[in-house]
């Protein structure tokens, strides 16, 4: 589903997940290197590292799969 022009709603979702994932993943890595004084419950599982990583990977997949260039190419081949 196009948002307009050659941008898909799934592209926006990809960007959102990728940016959030990158920020959370980066924060997780920083906390691994510099453990905080006040730790959340189950801190030892380092949820921000793997959850941030999952969001980043999903976000990159959506962003690339529905990138404007790829969508333009697909539209051109359909027309």
């Amino acid at each position: 589903m196009k948002v307009g022009g050659s941008l898909s709603i799934w592209f926006f979702i990809g960007i959102s997940l990728a940016v959030n994932g990158a920020v959370i993943f980066g924060t997780g890595i920083y906390e691994l290197l510099h453990p905080p004084e006040h730790q959340v419950v189950l801190y030892n599982l380092h949820a921000n590292v793997w959850w941030g990583g999952i969001l980043l990977a999903l976000g990159l997949f959506f962003s690339l799969r529905f990138s404007p260039a790829r969508e333009r190419a697909r539209l051109a081949s359909n027309s």
Binding site: I24, T27, P36, Q39, V40, V41, L42, N48, G52
Partner: peptide
């Protein structure tokens, strides 16, 4: 949310 989520994850939960 406050129990499990540290910086970043907390922001996402509030979002």
């Amino acid at each position: 949310l406050a129990r499990y989520c540290g910086p970043g994850l907390l922001g996402l939960g509030i979002t």
